[in-house]
Computed example of a mutant assay.
Amino acid sequence: MSDQPRRFAERLLHQLRRAPAGRIAALAHREFRDTLTSRQRSALVAYLTYAITVAAVRGVTVSVRKKQLGLRDVVVGPVHIHHYLPGIALLATAGALGVRGSDKLVVHCLAGATYGAGCGLVTDELPLLLALRDVYWTEEGRWATELILSIVGLVGAYFTAVPFWRALRVDLAAVRWRAPVKRSEEDA
Rank of each mutant, 00 (worst) to 15 (best):
T53L: 12
E146A: 12
P127C: 07
T49I: 02
A43D: 11
V181G: 02
I151D: 08
R178N: 03
L168T: 11
V75D: 08
Q68D: 09
S184A: 10
A174M: 12
Y84H: 13
A94D: 03
T123V: 04
Q4K: 15
L48H: 04
A157H: 01
T49A: 08
A9Q: 05
I81F: 02
T145C: 09
L13P: 01
V99I: 12
C119M: 12
G77N: 09
V99P: 00
V107C: 07
D103E: 14
L128S: 10
R18M: 08
Y115F: 05
T53K: 01
P127E: 04
F164W: 15
G120A: 13
R23S: 15
V152H: 08
A157G: 15
S63Y: 00
D124F: 00
G98D: 04
P5V: 15
P78F: 08
V45L: 05
W165S: 13
V45A: 04
V170S: 06
L48W: 03
P163F: 05
R72G: 06
P163L: 10
F8E: 14
G70L: 05
L105D: 15
V79S: 08
L154F: 06
G22V: 02
H83C: 11
F8K: 03
A28P: 10
P20N: 15
R133P: 01
A9F: 12
L172S: 03
W177T: 14
R176T: 14
P5D: 12
A94F: 01
R133L: 11
R178G: 06
L71W: 08
F159I: 11
L90P: 00
R41F: 01
R18S: 13
R183W: 07
R58E: 15
R176A: 07
Y50M: 08
F32G: 08
T114A: 09
A26T: 03
R166S: 10
L13F: 12
R142L: 14
L126W: 09
L172I: 03
K67A: 15
T123P: 00
D103T: 12
V64E: 08
G118W: 00
E185M: 05
R183I: 09
D124L: 02
R100A: 13
S63V: 01
A167C: 07
P20I: 09
D73K: 10
K66E: 07
I151G: 09
L147D: 11
A174I: 06
R33N: 06
R30C: 12
A56T: 10
G112F: 00
A43C: 12
V60M: 11
L16Y: 01
L110P: 05
G112V: 05
R166W: 01
T53E: 04
F8H: 04
V107S: 10
G141D: 11
G59S: 11
G59L: 04
A161H: 01
R166M: 11
R18C: 04
A89T: 13
V122I: 06
A25G: 07
L129W: 02
L168D: 09
L36V: 10
A179V: 10
T123F: 04
S38Q: 03
T61V: 07
A43V: 11
R183H: 09
E10G: 02
R72M: 07
V75Y: 02
R17V: 10
A113M: 14
F32S: 14
R65M: 03
W177P: 00
V99W: 05
A144T: 11
V107I: 06
